[in-house]
């Protein structure tokens, strides 16, 4: 067995893991770009997600939020096929249908910290690459912490 090291994106490209119908059938999950949400003065965190043509992925594939809370996503389908998104949200997941060349929004509420995956539940969009991550940073409130000295973390 040989291993590689160095630039992760280049490694994925070299291996044919970051696209459709290269070495594998679909795109390896979790290989997209990383984006960062912006928090508005109203406390709502906002980000825009696109589906590029023929790539069957959300871009950015990973969006980092500073903490949990209220979120507004703009979703744009630049593909020439129809997809959708089922996005976790407290209460009930939110669903949006994204026909070719369409644009919509999703207002969701998520706790932090933690990672949530959303996907297009049409055919096997999820397996081909249309699975994205919403990553909430931050800490739980002080009242939720244990009464003990600070502990080591990995």
């Amino acid at each position: 067995m040989t291993t590689t090291s160095g630039d992760r994106a280049a490694e994925l490209t070299d291996a044919g893991l970051d696209g459709q119908n290269k070495i594998a059938l679909g795109r390896l999950l979790g290989t997209g770009t990383v984006g960062y949400a912006e928090e508005g003065s109203d406390g709502v965190m906002r980000a825009t997600i696109r589906i590029p043509e023929d790539e069957l992925r959300y871009d950015p594939g990973i969006i980092v939020f500073p903490h949990g809370g209220e979120i507004e996503l703009t979703l744009i389908n630049d593909d020439k096929n129809t997809h959708c998104a089922v996005i976790p949200s407290n209460g009930d997941p939110k669903f949006i249908w994204l026909v070719n060349h369409s644009k919509g929004t999703a207002k969701i509420s998520l706790d932090g910290p933690g990672t949530y995956y959303y996907s297009s539940n049409s055919g096997n969009d999820e397996g081909r690459g249309l699975t994205g991550a919403l990553v909430m940073g931050g800490e739980v409130p002080d009242h939720a912490k244990q009464d003990r000295p600070p502990q080591p973390r990995p």
Binding site: V86, P93, K94, V99, K103, G104, T105
Partner: peptide
């Protein structure tokens, strides 16, 4: 762009 509107609760479907 076609207006896809705002995402709805999944249970609505």
């Amino acid at each position: 762009y076609v207006d896809a509107g705002e995402a709805i609760p999944h249970a609505q479907l």
